[in-house]
Simulated scan of single mutants.
Amino acid sequence: MALFGASLSGAGWQKLPSGLIIQWGQVLSNSGGFAPWTFPIAFPNACLQIYATPFVGASAQNFALTMIGNPTKIGVTTACYVSGVQSSVNGQVGVRYMAIGY
């Protein structure tokens, strides 16, 4: 069972025997309208895919997210939009994510 390392928390990860790693967490947008995050652990080789969804922070509605560049082994940044305008209120947009890599 040692091959199944994990940290099962709000920002956590699960390693599978195949080498596949699944990570998740949530962050709030900053005052520039961006939601950067660092994965709980670095992927040894590559991050293959990110799935992100906005959730209610403050009282914003009509969320949209756009990835900025490609994810790295340690993190990624998203731009957060509310009602079609990039967020400029700190903590206005929350982002929940799941990342898969190896």
Rank of each mutant, 00 (worst) to 15 (best):
M1L: 14
A2V: 11
A2F: 11
L3N: 13
F4E: 06
F4W: 13
S7L: 09
S9A: 07
S9Q: 10
A11E: 09
G12V: 06
W13S: 13
L16D: 12
G19R: 14
L20F: 13
I21R: 14
W24C: 05
G25Q: 07
G25R: 09
G25F: 06
S29H: 08
N30Q: 06
G32W: 08
G32D: 08
F34S: 07
P36F: 03
W37R: 04
W37K: 01
T38K: 08
F39R: 00
A42L: 04
A42S: 07
P44T: 11
A46R: 15
C47M: 10
L48R: 02
I50L: 04
Y51C: 00
Y51V: 02
P54T: 07
P54K: 10
F55N: 06
V56E: 13
A58V: 13
A58S: 13
A60M: 04
N62R: 01
N62M: 03
L65Y: 00
M67H: 06
M67I: 12
I68M: 13
I68E: 13
P71S: 11
K73L: 15
G75M: 12
T78N: 05
A79V: 07
Y81L: 12
S83P: 02
G84I: 03
V85Y: 03
V85I: 09
Q86F: 03
Q86N: 03
Q86A: 00
S87H: 00
S87A: 01
V89S: 06
V89K: 04
N90Y: 01
G91W: 00
G91P: 00
G91Q: 04
V93P: 03
V93A: 05
G94I: 02
G94C: 03
V95L: 12
V95N: 11
R96F: 12
M98H: 10
G101Q: 09
